[in-house]
Structures are given as C-alpha cells and as structure tokens.
Design a protein around this nucleic acid. Structure first.
Lengths: 372, 372
DNA sequence: TTGTACGCGTTATCAA
DNA sequence: TTGATAACGCGTACAA
C-alpha cells in the first residue's frame, strides 16, 4: 500500500504466526518519545557527534533509548556508512587444532571493540578462498584476517592492490606490503637444532611443510642454516605435500629410506604425528630409534605417545595481535604495514633423546658453538 | 550536498586515498546497462519473481549482470527483507576440540545454501551468552544454532517464547520445545558398561559432567541404569564442576578415594584426560590399575598415552544436521520441532583392560544378560 | 509484462 | 544547537 510520506508504517499485523519476534524500537521511536528529531537522536547517541548536541538533550535521548531498550540497527547503519564493523577471517580448516586458538584470539579482541568475525574455511583451495573472500566482500566486511596466505597468492596481491585492509597471520605472502603476525620460525628451528645437537645427533633430517606456504619454506631454510652453524648438513630432507598427518607419514617413509637420520625435525606438529605413524609402520620406536620434533605445540600434543617435543608458538596472542593491527589500520591510527614476530620457545618432551648408542654430548642450554 | 531526486550520486571522488576499494556495481547500474527499470532488473535477478519477467528480458539482464560482475548488496537486501541469510552459532569455546567439527559441519551446510555463520564463544557464562545473543539479534541473524544450552536456560526459554528460530546441538534444555540434534548418550554409555563388564569389571565408577548440562545428567542416568541391568551399582560417582581436564582430575581424585573402582566412565574425553592426570598423581597406571573410558571420541584422543577408549559421536554430522533443521525451519518447510538422535559407536582402545588380577569374563560383543 | 513510488533505519549535509 | 531532507541499495504493492 502506498502511504503518504511521514506516515508511520502499520506495525506488524497481529496475525498469529509461529515466529512473532517482537519488533525492535527504531531511532524514530526514540526520537518521538524524546520529543526530538531523529537526526538529533542519532547525533546524541553517536559517540563522535555527541558534542554537537546540547548536554541536556543528550541525556534525555539516552534515557529514553535505554528505557525503550533501543539499540541501533547495524544493517541500516552499514547501508549508510559502507562499514559493517565486521571482519572476515579466512582459515584453512578450523578443525586443524592450530587454528582455534588463533581464531579465538581474533574474536576476543574484535568483540572487545564492537567488531564481529565472519569465519570461513578454505581447505587450502585458492578457489574456495576466492569465493569466500568475495562473499565476505559482498557482506561489506571492513577488512580481513588471513591465515590461509600462500607464498604466491594472486588473490591477496589483487585485493591489497585495491586497498582492501588486511592482516596476515601465521603465514605470509611474498612481496605483499601488508601487516603480518607470525611466530619466529627461524629462532624456533634454531633452538630445535641446538637441542638435537646437544643430545648428540649429527644425522638430522627434515620433513618440510609444503613449499606453497611461507612457513614450509622459512622453516626449511632455518633448518639448513642452523645445521651449517654446526658444520653439519641435512641427513635428508623431504617436502610434504600438505600440513597433514598423512602427508607427514609419506614424507617420513621416504626420508628414512633416503638418509637414515637419528633425529627428524618436522615442519609442524601434524607432520610430526605423521612421522610417528611412519616409525610405527617400520617397527621403529621414538625416541629410542629416532627422535622427532614438531612445531607449534598445538593443544594436547604434550599428551601424545610419546609426548612431542615442539616449538611453542603463542597462537592466541597471534590472533589478538593480528586483530589489533587490523583495527588500528581500520581506525586510521596506523597506516604503514607492520610485521610482528612473536617469540617462540622450545618445549622439550619425550620424543627426543640421545641417538642410539650414544650419550648426550654436553649439558646446558644449547647455543651455537663460538666460531673457530 | 542536496541532490535532486533521480540524480545519480557522484561516484567516489578520485582523491588518492590509501583504501580506494573499487565501488561495486548496483542494481541500478545493471538496469541502466540493460535498458530496463531497476524494478525489472530486480525481478529478473530474483529466483521467485523471475517468472513475472519476459524470458528475453531476464536473459538480457542476467547477461549484463554477470558482465558487470554484479552481485546484490546483502546489507540493502536485509534492510528491506528483515532477513540476513546469517545464523548465529553459540559455542562454549571453539578451543575445546569437540566443537570445531560441529562448527565446521554447520558452516559447510550453511555455505552450501548461501547462508553465513556468525560464531561466538560464551565460556559457559550465561551472561556472555546473553550478550552475544543480543548482539547477534541486533545483526538480524535469521536464527541460532546453540551448542551452549544449559539444562535450565532462561535465555533460551525466553527467546523460544518470542518465536526466535533455533536449533540446539549436542546439549539440550529441559522443557524447551525446539529442535535438537544430539548423540545417543544412553546407547553410548550402555555400550561402555557392556564393554567394561565384558572385561570383568564389577567396581565401576563415574566422573559425571556438570549437572547444569543435559549431557552430564543424561550420561549419569544412563550409567546407573546400565549398571542395574547387570545387577550392579556404582562403585562411586562424583560430579565434576566443568567439562575440563582440571575438573576431571579433581573429581577423579575424590572418586578413587571414595570407591576404589577398577574402571571409570568419564562424562566426556576432557574429563577422561583429567582422570589420567589423577592416576598419574597417585602413581597408578591406566589401564593396568584402573580402566578409563571417555565420551565423544574427539580428534587425536586415540593418540594419547594410553589411547583412550571412547564413544564416537559424529560431531561433523551433528553440525550438518543442526544446520539442516534450522534452514528447514527458516524456509517454512518444516514447522514442528524435531529431536534428532544420531547413532554413536564404542571405539575400544588401550585405556581399557581387565581389572587387576582377572581375565576377561567372556568374549563376544557385550549385551545385557537375559533377565532371570 | 513492465514502470512508478515508497520505505526499510540510519546518517550526512544543508539550512535555520 | 536542532530540524529538514535526501540517500545508501534493494524489494514490492500498485498502477499501467
């Protein structure tokens, strides 16, 4: 029905319907009840326009608003402002135990600042990533937190080029000028190698993460250079096809055949579990026959059989920090991209021991020998 | 600036700004390009009004739309329709390994149908739940999937009373007439007791989940009635304060003191891990001294030390099913609440063995002895 | 079969 | 300091 302007819509007909959700009061309701114009009510209720309104009026409007239980309609606001107070979060798979703490950190920080997270799983599929990215774009997300970055990621380059605000977390993309928060892969791996050398290992292998990810590459590089500091070289190195147990197992079987290492550094914890499986397959025992080290120290990994020695990455803080960087960017507080490297620590557990037929070379926290 | 109606807004000034995101084409852009009125374009593009438009016109509009890369603005649509194609998902804590598979199931099903999930963590705090619920309400979510239900939950009763569409998953609320999807607690516990009795246990204890949750209560009841079928009674039963490892440990310590059981059924896997901890504390060994069984069969639980015998609940399917029920409800396809009970299976692993100084009583898959 | 005219609830801009 | 007005992008009764 065509209603003359200024007339209020007839509120929801009292037909008995199953889902009769009570209509929320609108800004106009508040304005009318407070005897002011909607625009004034809007100004009174909005943080940064409040100063334009006489304090007494502000007070009255706020009183009425809380009395009516008014809260602004974010949809209408978004339509007007082109912002949604919503950010998109892209993870490979929330089912991978590494990501829940990160996501939780992100959500906690966002919530604290009135923002909401929209999460999607990409399964490391660039196509799914693009689809989800577009869907979020359509929903007017103000920015993105990306845990799915590939080392070469046209999607991200494209978006960054268009000025889409985003922060990478955990993984990076090469040559992309955006903020990123990651654990210190290099130091982590270095500590691992120190530890293994300390124990007396000299034949150390590496099950590297996929070369499509920055973490895969970075940890492999770190591994090689850490060995060099001891004048060692890799007993063998195999690159896994994915950060999964299955891929780890396959890679480990290959590795054991190639290099007969007494210790193996895995690209992450899931790969390390795959290494366990491979050892099982061959009737070998960890750490008696082969020591295994993971990366990330994901939840419950210390309760495995045997408890996995791993590098603890502060996942939750990673999420917090990423969210902080994004909101800083969105609010214009910070404008130049920053790379944040969070400190990691080696957690020694039962999966590492001296090599077969040897005792630990020396005691004390391992560090590279002084050169010369 | 006041522009006469009908005039097109001046598109984004070409000022060099950091975040110059390309403006998305609108329905009007499509309409103009196709030489039709926006209303016509709208009808042509919308599934259920398409029949009102001449096929040739439909085709032309669609061509233009894809050519321009048009996709409707969900925000504007929501404002008009009061729907958002978004559903709120409430979980206690995404960091608890039980929930990621559920959430993933929900998101997968929703995505398949054009819906998006908004997830929030409540930490089992009714106040946080209410806050998140309200925030989602404000964002116009079309319905809720609730994994945080308390046995007595005023928030949910209130919302259900107002006709808010929702589906419970995993946990239930008493006397609440809404759809729910859960694992079959009763059958699961029954299988567990069968298994333990099979092994020869007669002194069986229970570390129950918190009585504020339906799962805590249901499993305890099932435990007692399963024992009755064997003319046994609980060696002891202690209720844990929360579904956490810490609470499980505390409860288990109490339980061991009270009843000296040879086997313990834990309310869920996290409690079972707590039981492991308690046994460690006392220098006891599982399963040699005490057998332990969990519930849920959460990821990686089979890789613990020892691998935990548990009841496998199809978490992912739980999520799928819950999402399906909700969308059915939202589309009006189904109107009466349904309770779906998903089948569970016992997964026997290394945490269960015959009691000290005994051999298994009988072989074969356990079932209750014929009465009499 | 298509066009006209509003309005969803909010905020930006101008005028007073 | 406040009010009036338009507009964000879309869907939909009504008219044609």
């Amino acid at each position: 029905m065509a209603v003359p302007p200024g007339t209020r819509r007839p509120r929801q007909a009292p037909i008995a319907t199953l889902s009769r959700v009570a209509p929320r009061p609108t800004l106009r309701d508040v304005a009318t009840a407070a005897g002011v114009h909607p625009a004034t009510a809007s100004r009174a209720l909005n943080e940064d326009t409040r100063s334009l309104v006489r304090p007494a009026t502000v007070e009255r409007v706020r009183q009425v608003a809380t009395a009516l239980g008014y809260s602004p309609n974010p949809i209408a606001r978004s339509l007007k402002t082109n912002r949604s107070e919503t950010v998109g979060v892209l993870v490979p798979d929330i089912t991978n135990p590494v990501f829940p703490p990160i996501v939780r950190g992100v959500e906690d920080f966002l919530a604290e600042h009135g923002y909401t997270a929209l999460t999607a799983n990409t399964d490391n599929d660039p196509e799914r990533a693009a689809l989800n990215f577009a869907a979020m774009q359509a929903r007017q997300v103000d920015g993105y937190i990306i845990a799915t970055a590939r080392r070469d990621d046209p999607l991200l380059h494209d978006a960054a080029g268009r000025g889409v605000p985003m922060v990478l977390v955990n993984r990076q993309t090469e040559g992309l000028d955006v903020s990123a928060v990651t654990g210190d892969d290099s130091v982590g791996i270095s500590r691992v190698v120190d530890h293994l050398v300390d124990l007396g290992h000299t034949r150390i292998g590496h099950v590297a993460g996929p070369s499509s990810t920055s973490t895969g590459i970075a940890r492999e590089r770190a591994f090689r250079s850490a060995l060099e500091r001891y004048d060692l070289s890799a007993a063998a190195a195999v690159t896994a096809q994915a950060f999964t147990e299955a891929a780890g197992r396959t890679a480990m079987l290959e590795l054991l055949e190639a290099g007969a290492p007494t210790a193996v550094v895995a690209g992450n914890d899931l790969l390390a579990i795959g290494c366990y499986d491979a050892l099982d397959d061959l009737g070998l025992e960890c750490p008696r026959d082969v020591s295994v080290v993971g990366f990330n120290d994901m939840p419950f990994i210390g309760r495995l059989r045997p408890p996995l020695t791993s590098v603890r990455v502060p996942q939750y803080e990673l999420g917090i920090e990423a969210a902080r960087l994004l909101l800083d960017r969105l609010s214009g507080r910070s404008t130049t991209p920053r790379s944040v490297l969070l400190p990691v620590t080696l957690v020694v557990r039962g999966s590492t021991a001296p090599p077969p037929g040897a005792r630990a070379r020396r005691r004390g926290r391992g560090s590279a020998p002084s050169p010369g």
